[in-house]
Amino acid sequence: MRSKQIACALTLAVLLAGAGGCGESRGYDVPKALCGKKVDSELLKPLLPPGERIDARQGMDKDWTETCRVSVDKELVLYIDDARSSGHIDAMAFAKEPYRQLKNLHKTGIGDDGVLADNGAYVVNRCAYRGKQASYILEIRVSGPRAESSDSLRPEIQRFAESYLPVGAKAMGCGT
């Protein structure tokens, strides 16, 4: 009986040590929508840090761009910009702009012209908008503790961007 109690105590201690050591305590549920757009919460989760409260605020600039600023405990941790353009957009040229603060840029197979960074992505996809040729542009930037604690979130960002791309394009009125 005594050995069974010790075994149970050791098992509980190992489980608690494992749970406490991961540092992923979230006092919030990972959302299934951001700024009115459905997202895959399992793909979003790796981009968000632990914390107590999550908040997503939508912004708009005229008819052609929407932003979503996601904060955890009042710190900006994820920025998503959905835009539409009638002109040609070179994803790498735009991704290199210093104010975007994207690190370690590489071309990727996301969209028609995509750039993946350690902390974000810049993707351009051709689309039709009101019967005319246009481009849908998706910019994602991860900041805050998650971006600072990792050398690269590249695989997680790529998976999230690939799943978000059709949702964002549709919300911006882009068809294929």
Rank of each mutant, 00 (worst) to 15 (best):
S85G: 11
T108F: 03
E42V: 07
A13N: 09
V123F: 08
K62P: 00
S85T: 09
S85Q: 12
D81N: 15
R84E: 11
D55Q: 04
C35Y: 07
E139N: 14
L105G: 00
A19Q: 11
I80Y: 04
P50M: 01
R26G: 06
K107R: 14
R84W: 02
A9K: 07
L76Q: 10
R126I: 03
H106I: 09
I137V: 15
Y129M: 03
E66I: 11
A19R: 09
A95P: 00
K132T: 06
G27K: 10
R26W: 00
A117C: 09
A95H: 03
A117I: 02
S85R: 09
Q58T: 12
K96I: 07
A13Y: 13
D113Y: 12
A95E: 13
K132N: 04
D29S: 14
D82E: 08
E42T: 14
D112T: 07
E24L: 15
A91D: 09
V123A: 03
R69K: 12
A93M: 06
E97W: 01
D55S: 15
V124G: 04
G59M: 05
G23E: 03
E42M: 10
G23V: 02
A33Y: 06
P98Y: 00
G131D: 04
N125A: 13
L102W: 00
D63I: 14
A33K: 13
H106M: 13
V39K: 07
M60D: 12
E42S: 06
G21D: 04
A13H: 12
L15A: 11
D29E: 13
P31E: 10
G21C: 05
N119L: 03
T65F: 08
L16D: 01
K132I: 01
D81M: 10
F94T: 14
P46N: 01
L44W: 09
E75K: 14
G36F: 00
D73Q: 11
A134T: 04
K38G: 05
S25E: 10
D73Y: 04
A121G: 07
A93T: 09
G27I: 03
H88Q: 08
V124S: 00
I89H: 00
A83P: 05
G131H: 15
L138V: 10
R130S: 05
H106L: 12
P46D: 08
R126Q: 12
M60F: 13
L105F: 11
K62Q: 06
I80D: 02
K62M: 12
G111L: 09
L34P: 06
V123G: 02
W64R: 08
P50F: 10
V72Q: 08
P50N: 09
P46F: 00
P49K: 04
R84Q: 09
A121N: 03
N125Y: 08
E66Y: 03
G111N: 02
P98A: 15
P46E: 07
D61R: 15
A19W: 11
K107C: 01
R26H: 07
L44S: 02
K74D: 03
N119P: 07
R26L: 08
L78I: 03
A33H: 11
A134I: 09
Q101D: 15
V14S: 05
V14P: 00
S71R: 13
H88E: 14
V39Q: 03
A83W: 09
